[in-house]
Design a binder for these strands. Structure first.
Lengths: 314, 314
DNA sequence: CCGGCTAATGAGTAATTGCCCATAGCATAG
DNA sequence: CTATGCTATGGGCAATTACTCATTAGCCGG
């Protein structure tokens, strides 16, 4: 363990010498007394471990313009548009960094706030970009259950990752994401602890939501929360996306019945009382983002240029 | 002008694709439709223009340890120690970034504060690392005059650079750094505008000071504020360093008489009422830093490992 | 003490980047 | 219209970095 710490320490030092002081890896090797290859490994370790944070400090005109138009068109409080990386398949690069910056800004506030957190790969990537912080004044509450269908902790429930990075009081939901019946869901929600957490989430000052598609590779199916049959049924009922488990149609209205009767997640905090961020980019997410905007489920958006352009064209 | 903006825009985009999205310069060239060389130029332009900000997010154990010990030994409110770059001659790399981060943190506060700023190469480098910001709520006041001996604006008076980067109300001091006589100094200080600025600086919430050495290559001499003869006289009187023009001895006491009778700078804000940062590193600055600490002129310090080690040994 | 395993190391090499330089484009003054 | 000087461009090459692979050191269980 200690050796691991020392290694990270060296990695940080190598990363510093490389990125801040502008040394070559050869210099670093000499200065740290290791081989050039080892120096290279240390630098790349520092990058891989997320020790190196790069931000571009320039309001790229086109992004700003798109953000303005998104705000006006969809009545948003905050819109952030990051550059697109043409041809990259990643659905997280860029928006994750931007979401992390937004989250960090809130966490740095001295006055206590409550942050509600959804789930998904994009949010997970965002949390991983957060620096280590110590903010005992804040509360972070999960909107979804953390129990996977096989009984283990759901991997993309990100509140644990977050609690690990940021030392604030965290409120997970010891529930399955989708209960086996409406009755079970209601029963679980009546438990005092759960009820208190649900209440807390409704009062969140800021909310960060991922948007899940309900296409062929829907994350809810991939992760085993939904069967193919259930997905097909939802699609027939017009579902185009889900947010913390709640299936919505193209206009952002929740699908009536089906799995929505059994979703154990908290309701999405009101856009009247909370800053509700949607974090998503990419063509696959496009219908979902558009639906969330149309249905006024969110009042803030972090996305990329291509997606923003498509949203404005839609 | 517009072409320049567009170019910086592209530079930012290229920098983003390179550092955040992890593209090769070849990819970027293809994606932006320019040659590889041009892409390389854009990336390096982004770096040169300070659009790319890198920070290492890891508390390097040794630095933290040194910071703790500095705080205890010299009764400091804040101590920050950045890694040393062995063999590098720069007296700014590292501490400039750290000072910029500290300054940025204050500027991001929504409540209005007053920041007092000294002068010098280190501070100038720090200011240049600041991102562009818009903080009309704050006031920034210079502690020193901005008139060089030849009548032009003093180059290392950094308040203009700062006002340029950060849109906040700035209060320069339209004075020479060192007046021609005590009488002239006192007369200038009685002018209503100047008196008001002096009053403002005394009430600063945060103060950032560079520390100037008084050795052979003393910046005050290099910049023509002091003659060699005056320097020699100061040295004979025991002066080891200067802070905003005030010469101090090895115990941090101001030298009595000599140029100190004519220095037109504001007094250093009190460490009782202001957070007073010293920003300096390197063997040349060591006696000055040590003196400032001993004389309790500053209550916070940003320096590097080597200097911190030397300070603790001294 | 010995095999078998894992992690770390260094050599070698391919990929990428930084830089110099000759040249082309372009504006401006004559 | 032409000469002049400036800037941007792409070719070419050297330096630097990333990656693969074989080897070795260290470590554990037998």
């Amino acid at each position: 363990m200690a050796t691991n710490t020392i290694r990270l320490d060296d990695a940080a030092r190598a990363g510093w010498l490389y990125y801040v002081a502008g040394n070559t890896q050869d210099d670093i090797a000499r200065k740290l007394g290791v081989s050039r290859q080892s120096a290279q490994r240390l630098v790349s370790l520092a990058v891989k471990e997320g020790l190196v944070k790069v931000r571009i400090d320039h309001p790229i005109a086109n992004c700003l313009d798109l953000a303005h138009r998104l705000k006006a068109r969809f009545d948003l409080r905050i819109a952030e548009v990051v550059p697109s990386d043409p041809g990259s398949a990643s659905t997280t690069v860029g928006v994750a960094e931007a979401a992390a910056a937004e989250l960090e800004r809130r966490l740095l506030l001295p006055d206590p706030i409550t942050i509600a957190i959804g789930t998904g790969r994009t949010l997970k990537a965002a949390i991983e970009k957060l620096p280590s912080m110590d903010c005992p004044q804040h509360k972070v509450v999960s909107l979804t259950g953390n129990i996977a269908p096989d009984g283990s902790a759901a991997f993309y429930n990100v509140i644990f990752t977050m609690a690990d990075k940021v030392k604030c009081r965290s409120f997970p939901m010891p529930l399955p994401v989708i209960a086996s019946s409406t009755g079970e869901r209601d029963l679980l929600h009546k438990q005092p602890m759960i009820a208190a957490t649900l209440k807390l989430s409704a009062d969140a000052d800021v909310t960060f939501l991922g948007i899940g598609d309900l296409g062929h590779q829907a994350p809810l199916v991939v992760d085993g929360f939904l069967t193919d049959a259930e997905l097909a049924e939802l699609n027939r009922a017009g579902a185009v996306a889900e947010i913390v488990g709640w299936a919505i149609d193209a206009d952002g209205r929740p699908i009536a019945g089906l799995t929505n009767d059994r979703v154990a997640s908290a309701p999405i905090p009101s856009r009247e009382t909370s800053l509700v961020f949607g974090i998503a980019k990419g063509p696959l997410k496009l219908p979902g983002i558009f639906a969330a905007l149309k249905g006024r489920l969110i009042n803030s958006l972090i996305t990329d240029e291509d997606t923003a352009t498509a949203l404005l064209a839609g």
